[in-house]
């Protein structure tokens, strides 16, 4: 795997109600050789068939992948937290799954992913909060910021669910407030080394 010239080593994305279409918009902008590993935690019911169909759109160059415990967290695919598991990133850059109690009424929980990824990557991490109707993710994003990472939220004015975004904005001084399309473009340019921070 290439190491991204951007200096970033991980991207974590969290969302809940109304986050599938912005997530697709972001991921569709990324090429197959996108070199920063991506992990996504979305609140979802354990069924998930509909969910997979929605995410497996053909425009996406990166494949959606539900990892096994202890898989290395690498670029080339999008790691999606499996239904009913917390997905964590360990310090040796492997994925760690857990069925421990719900956090913020959710499993997978966004905070579980964000906080552990922040411990792993420090300032080399980008955290993104999308549409959602809970406060999950706010603590995680705050930790990412505290460790020097970059924080982005979807523009709440055009999001289906504002609560998650507003909550994150209340607790963290967000770096960028973008539309999903802008986030996609930003990440792509960042990886190519042509984005300015």
């Amino acid at each position: 795997m290439n190491v991204s010239t951007s200096g970033f080593e991980g991207i974590v994305i969290g969302g809940s109600a109304g986050s599938i279409s912005p997530l697709c918009a972001i991921l569709s902008a990324l090429p197959s050789d996108f070199s920063i590993p991506i992990a996504v935690a979305l609140h979802r019911s354990s069924g998930g068939v509909e969910f997979h169909k929605a995410l497996g759109s053909p425009e996406m160059a990166l494949k959606i992948y539900e990892p096994n415990d202890r898989d290395p967290f690498v670029a080339g695919k999008v790691f999606l937290a499996p239904a009913d598991y917390h997905m964590l990133v360990d310090k040796d850059k492997t994925i760690c799954l857990s069925t421990s109690d719900m956090t913020n009424y959710a499993r997978p929980s966004i905070d579980e992913l964000f906080e552990t990824a922040a411990d792993c990557f420090g300032k080399k991490l980008i955290g993104i909060i999308l549409s959602g109707a809970s406060r999950d993710g706010s603590d995680g994003l705050m930790k990412i910021k505290a460790k020097g990472g970059l924080t982005i939220v979807q523009n709440p004015l055009k999001a289906d669910g504002e609560t998650m975004i507003r909550s994150a904005m209340e607790t963290t001084n967000i770096d960028y407030l973008y539309s999903p399309e802008q986030i996609g473009r930003f990440l792509k340019d960042l990886d190519k080394g042509s984005a300015t921070l």
């Binding site: 310090k91 760690c96 857990s98």
Partner: peptide
């Protein structure tokens, strides 16, 4: 035990 899982439990 997996250090990370235990740590999460402890932090809770």
């Amino acid at each position: 035990y997996s250090r990370l899982s235990v740590k999460r439990q402890i932090l809770k």
